[in-house]
């Protein structure tokens, strides 16, 4: 049987060495359909979460709110010319949690 979205992500999340809350964050990302475009380690329609963490790793603290804003409002230019869709149904608190989770904070 092929792994489900959630299983794949949890697998990825484990690779990213994230602790217990990761499961809750992964479930949130799953509910918000982030995994339609992102995977933990492979490039999908958007960059992999691992690549995002690697790119912004040096400036994690500053980048968390920037990425949270981008998750809510969409936008592009960092990885190519394809804008990410906005996720207006994600609250600011959830967007921050997702950004921090991706950055491995």
């Amino acid at each position: 049987m092929k792994p489900t979205f959630l299983e794949r992500t949890l697998l990825g999340a484990t690779l990213m060495a994230v602790a217990a809350t990761a499961a809750a964050d992964a479930a949130l990302a799953e509910r918000k359909f982030c995994f339609s475009c992102h995977h933990a380690t492979e490039t999908g329609l958007g960059p992999s979460f691992q690549a995002i963490a690697a790119r912004h790793g040096a400036r994690r603290a500053q980048m968390a709110p920037v990425l949270a804003y981008k998750i809510q409002h969409g936008g592009g230019g960092n990885w190519g010319v394809v804008p990410m869709v906005p996720s207006q149904n994600v609250s600011e608190a959830d967007a921050t949690a997702l950004a921090r989770w991706i950055l491995g904070l």
Binding site: C37, L45, G46, G74, G75, G76, G77, G80, V81, V82, P83, V85
Partner: peptide, 22 residues
């Protein structure tokens, strides 16, 4: 509008790739 806001060097490429993703 967000695609147009990319100000991509080649707007046609941005349009095609973005709508493909959608």
């Amino acid at each position: 509008a967000a695609i147009a806001d990319m100000h991509a060097p080649d707007p046609a490429v941005a349009r095609t790739q973005s709508w493909q993703m959608i």
